[in-house]
Design a protein around this nucleic acid. Structure first.
Lengths: 80, 80
DNA sequence: CTATCTATCTATAACTA
DNA sequence: TTAGTTATAGATAGATA
């Protein structure tokens, strides 16, 4: 099992990238879902897999609704 | 400290919502960052806080670039 | 309200099949 | 390859300041 602390840097092995992406993608979506429910907030998550495929998550509302909410913000509220 | 398993349902206490949102928001952004680095993929995260304020994260590219990549996908690739 | 601490829960890298 | 297991690293709820 894991014996050392994980280094956050690009994985080189192609198979390993895909396995890691698949597992962490699930974990990330789960966390996003929990946040949206616990705090009753809008969360949208857009990811492109290593092979370029799209993955989406949105809590409460649809992706389109959340993106629209973002796009419609006044300019000065959009800069992070 | 925590003695029981957390139930994923809306938190009722207002102060607690804000504290939980703040902590989990950090955790979610960290996970999104790690995924983007480990797997070298585009990740965009859009959240609205309980008070309606915007929080953004994007790995590798800007939010605008990732949203553009999403919007420009052919229709049949956009449905989750 | 904000920041830190820590016991406990959860995610997951390496492993097995 | 993909799916399941498990031990350890990592996240975090509640406590404390």
């Amino acid at each position: 099992m894991r014996r050392v602390k994980l280094q956050i840097k690009r994985i080189e092995n192609t198979t390993n990238i895909q396995v890691t992406f698949s597992k962490r993608r699930s974990g990330l979506i789960k966390k996003a879902y929990e946040l949206s429910v616990l705090c009753d907030v809008d969360v949208a998550l857009i990811m492109f897999s290593p092979s370029g495929r799209l993955s989406l998550f949105s809590g409460n509302k649809s992706i389109e609704e959340i993106l629209a909410r973002y796009v419609n913000l006044p300019e000065h509220e959009r800069g992070r």
